[in-house]
């Protein structure tokens, strides 16, 4: 669903993700409303029957230039400021989400995607397919790779995911606060089994 209440968010990095999403959403929504509102107002105000303007388009007559550079530069300034500040704001968050946490209480679990399922290898060497158990309150790093083709390892409730690339490792981490069962799913088309390429993430 579009938004979740704080209580429904099971842990990081979903909190960060939602706060960023809300920032984008509110700005985007506001800008959209203003711009489209302006458009509808103009259409309403300058309709043929209400407008007192002259008709300047004439057959066989190249239209003259209209508008001035200042207004255009204004458009440029506003869009550039909004967009660049959003991107620059995103940059530290990128490293927050992508940098692999280190420390004694970080658990690193290997994930191997294959057609069609997920195999997990715990630090102590035990393996499981289709299900992974992690403790509450610890940071868990998933070291993801693929056996065959490109998959996408996504834990949607934690708002994070990364490609599973054959022959290479990619990383994501979560730090769950809420015990429960969450869905891990493949988000990159990988053949007929793709829709059912799910696994369970059990926190608790």
């Amino acid at each position: 669903m579009l938004f979740k209440t704080i209580l429904e968010i099971p842990g990081e990095p979903a909190f960060t993700w939602y706060s960023l999403f809300q920032l984008y959403f509110s700005l985007g929504f506001a800008i959209g409303v203003v711009v489209l509102g302006l458009m509808f107002y103009f259409i309403y105000r300058y309709r043929e029957d209400r407008s007192t303007e002259s008709e300047d388009i004439k057959p066989g007559r190249i239209p003259t230039e209209r508008g001035n550079l200042k207004v255009i530069l204004g458009f440029l300034g506003i869009t550039a400021i909004v967009l660049y500040s959003l991107t620059i704001y995103s940059i530290p968050l990128t490293s927050y989400i992508e940098d692999v946490p280190e420390g004694d209480d970080v658990i690193v679990i290997d994930v191997i995607g294959f057609q069609w399922g997920w195999r997990f290898i715990y630090p102590n060497g035990t393996e499981s397919v289709g299900e992974v158990k992690v403790p509450v309150g610890k940071t868990v790093v998933f070291r993801v790779t693929s056996l065959d083709i490109l998959h996408n390892f996504k834990i949607r409730d934690f708002r994070t995911g990364v490609d599973a690339v054959p022959g290479a490792y990619t990383y994501i981490w979560i730090s769950p606060h809420e015990p429960g069962e969450y869905i891990i799913q493949c988000y990159e088309l990988c053949g007929v089994g793709h829709a059912n390429m799910v696994a369970k993430l059990i926190v608790g």
Binding site: R47, E48, G67, F75, A80
Partner: peptide
């Protein structure tokens, strides 16, 4: 990511200019 955001700038100008073309017009 930066260049992608940059591409929205010219599109912003295009869209706003289209919308401002309705200003002081005689719309059919």
């Amino acid at each position: 990511s930066l260049t992608t955001e940059s591409i929205s700038v010219p599109f912003g100008i295009i869209m706003l200019s289209f919308i401002f073309s309705l200003y002081k017009a005689k719309i059919k």
